[in-house]
Amino acid sequence: MEMTRGLWQHRAMIEFRALPDDHPDLSYSPLLRGAILTLKYAQEHGSIGLTKTKSFKRVFVHWAVEHFDWPGKSAEEMFRYNKVINEFEFPPLEVLHFLLISLRLARHLKGEFRLTKKGAELAQCPGRLFAELIPYFVLRVDHASYARFDEAPFGKWDVWMNVINVEADHGATEAGLFEAFYGEAKDWHTAGWREMAAFSCCVLRPLEWSGLLMESQEDDAGKRVSHVFKTPLWRSALILDTDEMLRPVRVQ
């Protein structure tokens, strides 16, 4: 799978703070958690076996499904419908595999996934690993490729993140964020559901997988309504031009 078909817009006006390895907000990142687990598994077992197509073998895929604690993809739910799961059927692992190889934290050697010296070192350093992994994933990966969209939504990361910084500061709906960028009311229940899907999968999902946003859902008159919130990690990790526009939270 090719995820760098065209590198996404560079990091203008987006700065990530360096966080210490023991910073509590790092726990909000599912992708960081999965990376640490994968690196430590490879370290403890010497390597992870690969198939002929250089995907992780099922024994590790099953282990990852059980241990990643991925939001919305619990082991119980995934194994309920599939007793055998391949890497491509667990998209977070497929993306993570690509990232670890691309960042040279691991390499493929003689049918195995093995850590590099840098990967072994960062497996013990969550703050440094976050700094390597998350900016690259959010800002440089072609998210439309693994989401199976022909085209990504129009826009740039510096605009998306600076606007979300303000609009979602006290929570926002997914549809409300779409309208803030594109001036049209689209939703999963309208004719514009494809545009909403592209925005959700290529903009909001990477931020959620990174642990910068979180999503909750509720039913409103039989329709699913998604609410988006900034996590504490967003506030700890990001420095954005629109920070000065944020309103303080009122304490009753």
Rank of each mutant, 00 (worst) to 15 (best):
L26W: 08
T51S: 14
P92D: 04
S226C: 09
Q9T: 09
V228F: 00
K40E: 12
A120R: 06
P126K: 10
S216P: 00
P135D: 08
T53R: 06
V249W: 03
R250G: 09
F90K: 14
G176F: 01
P206D: 03
V84F: 08
L93Q: 13
K110W: 04
V203E: 01
A75Y: 10
L240R: 11
L246E: 05
W63N: 14
E208G: 07
F178Q: 00
Y136T: 11
R58W: 03
T4P: 00
A64W: 08
F229L: 10
H189W: 07
L122F: 09
W188C: 00
S226Y: 03
F199D: 06
V61K: 11
A197P: 00
D220Q: 13
S55A: 10
G111D: 07
I164Q: 05
V95T: 10
Q252P: 07
Y28Q: 11
A75D: 09
F60W: 08
F56M: 05
L103W: 15
Q9G: 11
A131V: 01
L129G: 02
T4Q: 12
Y41C: 13
R250K: 12
V65R: 09
G176K: 02
N82M: 07
L109I: 06
R114Q: 15
G183F: 04
E184H: 05
E132Q: 08
H189Y: 08
M245F: 04
L99T: 03
L109F: 06
C202P: 15
E195W: 01
T53G: 12
D241L: 15
C125R: 04
D158N: 10
D241V: 13
W234C: 05
R17M: 04
R11F: 01
